[in-house]
Write a protein that binds this DNA or RNA. Structure first.
Length: 413
RNA sequence: GGAGGGAUUCCCGAGUUGGCCAAAGGGGGCAGACUGUAAAUCUGCUGGCACUGCCUUCGAAGGUUCGAAUCCUUCUCCCUCCA
């Protein structure tokens, strides 16, 4: 545990903090003992995404400061579905999906958090939620909740106003999550719950429940959601979320996502998503105009390194630099292998673009070519039926470029 | 359970006196110009294909018609009011 600095102040300085139930008490607590805290992850997809990663960063900071994280996989709560921050009801997941997703989460979290002897815990709230007895639960937990108060919570208010309404199922989510906190408090002396700011009402209700049911002291804090300077949710691309699973978002694409971040967001991302010292973060964030590209490269490299490891980060950086700096060929850039025979015979450009995944359809390829959006070795492809063959290979590869930023290598197989 | 209203292309949302509807407009996305692998701005594109044509799409299935997103029937789901 750092004697010089309280983790709370570290988290605050780096810009994670949004709200806290009792800031001073939490600081005191974190300063004097190793505190068990928890963050929940609802397994609604089969991979964590960068939004989750922000939470994971907090856990890592905490663990480094000597505290004990509990990662809750919301196998039970996912059965209900969190209405917070949602304009409509979540799609219901089957048990099998949830189990599958929970297993993936577990694997990914283990990369970031040390779950070795007593250093951290991972539990699935399905373990206690699924076996609850309805009447018993209502009598023990339900009686501590005032519907009047619940309805005034922001997360319900918006849904009450929306025409899609709020189902009774979702209305219970808050009780489930509050009960989780109580359960962890009892089992592991967990006194602190963290979450994204959209979790605020769920968290304070858990804190209240512990006080009412057991007379215990527990606290909660929420962290900023990853948003751009314009307030849009970050980590979303046209093709969906930016995933931590390399099979869903390749390390190269992951690197490029951060490399292309908006100028005003660079400093914030460096502080939140890397462990670089704040002096360095501020120096990089202060860079102007072209110079800020240096900061973006550092950001992309550091985040990729944390998520995919140094080897993958080096590869991604090498590929990006080769491609953007000198239009060179890199072993690590996105590549498609085409049958040698097919290449020898020649393929029309539109088909090749579809084969490489650069375009979703031939129509799209056709339009793109008409708009001068595709180049082969930096020469615009003239027409969609231009034949591309092994004659265009140089040293066994050719470089296609879609737009200004998407490079793709084609090789014969 | 009763009475009304609705379901449109990635999203929002026009269109419902039947043809001029692959379907307005906006958002998003992609591309071009300008740049710094940034933002902003301007321009073009934005269902598929064998692309001056054909095919599949307007909740689902049938029907009327030369012709239906538009009319009729049944079904599914959603919303509002009443209980």
């Amino acid at each position: 545990m750092s004697l010089l600095e309280n983790v709370l102040d570290v988290l605050k300085e780096r810009g994670y903090l949004e709200q806290a139930t009792h800031e001073d008490e939490i600081r005191e607590l974190l300063g004097k003992e190793s505190v068990t805290f928890y963050i929940g992850f609802d397994p609604t997809a089969d991979s964590l995404h960068v939004g989750h990663f922000l939470q994971v960063m907090v856990m890592m900071h905490m663990q480094r400061a000597g505290h004990r994280p509990i990662a809750i996989i919301g196998g039970g709560t996912a059965m209900v579905g969190d209405p917070s921050g949602r304009s409509d009801m979540r799609q219901m997941l089957t048990m099998e999906q949830i189990d599958h997703n929970a297993a993936s989460f577990k694997k990914q979290l283990s990369r970031f958090i040390d779950f070795g002897e007593g250093k951290a815990l991972m539990v699935n709230n399905a373990d206690w939620l699924l076996n609850l007895n309805y009447i018993e639960f209502l009598r023990n937990v339900g009686r501590h909740f005032s519907v009047n108060r619940m309805l005034s919570a922001e997360c319900f208010k918006s849904r009450m106003a929306a025409e899609s309404g709020l189902s009774f199922l979702e209305f219970n989510y808050m009780l489930m999550q509050s009960y989780d906190f109580l359960e962890l408090y009892r089992r592991y002396n967990c006194k602190l719950q963290f979450g994204g700011n959209d979790q605020w009402s769920n968290i304070i209700n858990g804190v209240d429940l512990i006080r009412r049911a057991d007379g215990g002291s527990a606290y909660g804090m929420t962290f900023k959601l990853l948003v751009t300077s314009e307030g849009k949710k970050m980590g979303k691309t046209q093709s969906g979320a930016v995933w931590l699973d390399p099979a869903k978002t390749s390390p190269y694409d992951f690197y490029q996502y951060w490399r292309n971040i908006d100028d005003p967001d660079v400093e914030n991302c460096l502080a939140l998503l890397t462990f670089l010292p704040m002096d360095e973060v501020r120096r990089l964030g202060a860079l102007k105009d072209q110079a800020i590209n240096e900061a973006k490269e550092v950001l992309a490299f550091e985040v990729t390194k944390l998520v995919h490891g140094e080897a993958e980060a080096l590869k991604a950086r090498e590929a990006a630099q080769a491609v953007f700096a000198g239009a060179g060929i890199s072993d690590n850039m996105p590549t498609t292998l085409i049958e040698a025979g097919q290449l020898d015979a020649g393929i029309d450009a539109a088909t090749l673009l579809v084969e490489t995944g650069l375009c979703a359809s031939k129509g799209e390829a056709r339009r793109l070519i008409q708009q001068n959006g595709v180049t082969l070795w930096d020469a615009p492809i003239q027409s969609f039926d231009q034949v591309i063959s092994s004659k265009d290979l140089k040293d066994g590869s050719m470089i296609l470029k879609k737009g200004k930023k998407t490079y793709h290598k084609v090789q014969a197989k």
